Amino acid sequence: MKQLPNILTLSNLFCGALAVIYILHAPQYIAEFNGVEYTITNPEPVYWASAMVVLAALFDFTDGLAARWLKLQSPFGRELDSLADVISFGLVPGLMLFRLLRSAYMRMPDVFDVSYINLAPALLVPCFAAYRLAKFNLDTRQSENFIGIPTPAVGLLVASFPLIILYNPFNLAHWLQNIWVLYTIIALLCYLMVAEIPMLSLKFKSLQLKPNWARLLLVALSVAGIPVLKFATVPFVFICYVLLSIVSKPSTGNAVK
């Protein structure tokens, strides 16, 4: 039982590593249209990568619960958790955005190949995620709430993009296949991860309404959004999370996590 939190953390890392494999090994094939050959990527493995990110997030949530329940919180566990998170919620969304950018460029007229220089901004996401996680481990103000958007939120948001493109609710796929929209998303995510903005933690320390109204409202909006918005619920909840955090102004503590 003493190793249960670490096993859950390593399960998070395992899912993240598997997601990387799915993204990198999405098979490509050549298609010909009007005498012109096109390289097309089979998107199915990327959908599986999205599922792995969701599973990694579940393990990331439960490892903290297990550590608190068993009273096994330690500096080692905190460092191991960050190492897993930088893969599952840093590298994986960066690679997904890399793929999405390439697909967006390939949809443009008269484009046969894309320079990696144009796609490199996607890799800023894992860089900023690593910076945020290193800062989190040393920042004693983040014991009760976060400062800057947590990396699992970024991972889940980006993991929803391939599924939104597949099912296309409210024609959102059109926007996620626009290079300038993707560049804007990358810039915003990088900024929000390191910004000095207090963000809500979803930990309920009491059942009182007043200190938890923003958390309860976020849960209610999430549940209400699923049947209407489908996979678009994820970006909707992400936006609500940021706005509710700004409005509610959660306090930060001085105790070490």
Results as ranks from 00 to 15, higher is better:
residue 141 R to P: 15
residue 98 F to P: 02
residue 165 I to G: 07
residue 152 P to F: 04
residue 121 P to K: 01
residue 93 P to K: 05
residue 4 L to Q: 10
residue 244 L to T: 05
residue 6 N to E: 08
residue 16 G to Y: 10
residue 27 P to M: 07
residue 111 V to D: 14
residue 56 A to T: 14
residue 224 A to W: 10
residue 23 I to P: 00
residue 133 L to K: 04
residue 211 P to M: 02
residue 136 F to Q: 02
residue 62 T to D: 06
residue 51 A to P: 00
residue 86 V to L: 05
residue 148 G to E: 07
residue 21 I to K: 15
residue 139 D to P: 00
residue 237 V to W: 00
residue 49 A to G: 07
residue 62 T to V: 08
residue 212 N to Y: 11
residue 243 L to C: 12
residue 166 L to H: 10
residue 198 P to G: 09
residue 147 I to K: 00
residue 138 L to G: 11
residue 48 W to D: 12
residue 72 L to H: 09
residue 167 Y to G: 09
residue 84 A to E: 00
residue 200 L to W: 07
residue 25 H to V: 08
residue 185 I to Q: 05
residue 121 P to Q: 00
residue 61 F to S: 14
residue 153 A to G: 11
residue 218 L to Q: 14
residue 208 Q to T: 05
residue 132 R to A: 04
residue 206 S to P: 08
residue 183 Y to S: 13
residue 83 L to Q: 01
residue 182 L to H: 09
residue 253 G to L: 01
residue 182 L to C: 08
residue 112 F to H: 05
residue 157 L to H: 03
residue 233 T to E: 08
residue 112 F to I: 01
residue 62 T to A: 09
residue 245 S to R: 00
residue 124 L to K: 05
residue 163 L to Y: 08
residue 228 V to D: 15
residue 172 L to A: 15
residue 143 S to H: 12
residue 56 A to W: 11
residue 73 Q to C: 03
residue 41 T to K: 06
residue 11 S to N: 04
residue 90 G to Y: 00
residue 245 S to G: 12
residue 39 T to E: 06
residue 144 E to C: 14
residue 246 I to H: 06
residue 256 V to P: 02
residue 53 V to E: 01
residue 192 L to F: 14
residue 218 L to S: 12
residue 34 N to G: 04
residue 220 A to V: 07
residue 24 L to Q: 14
residue 178 N to H: 14
residue 165 I to T: 08
residue 171 N to G: 15
residue 95 L to I: 04
residue 63 D to I: 02
residue 20 V to W: 12
residue 178 N to R: 11
residue 210 K to E: 14
residue 228 V to Y: 04
residue 71 K to R: 05
residue 168 N to C: 07
residue 53 V to C: 12
residue 175 W to Q: 11
residue 99 R to S: 11
residue 120 A to Q: 03
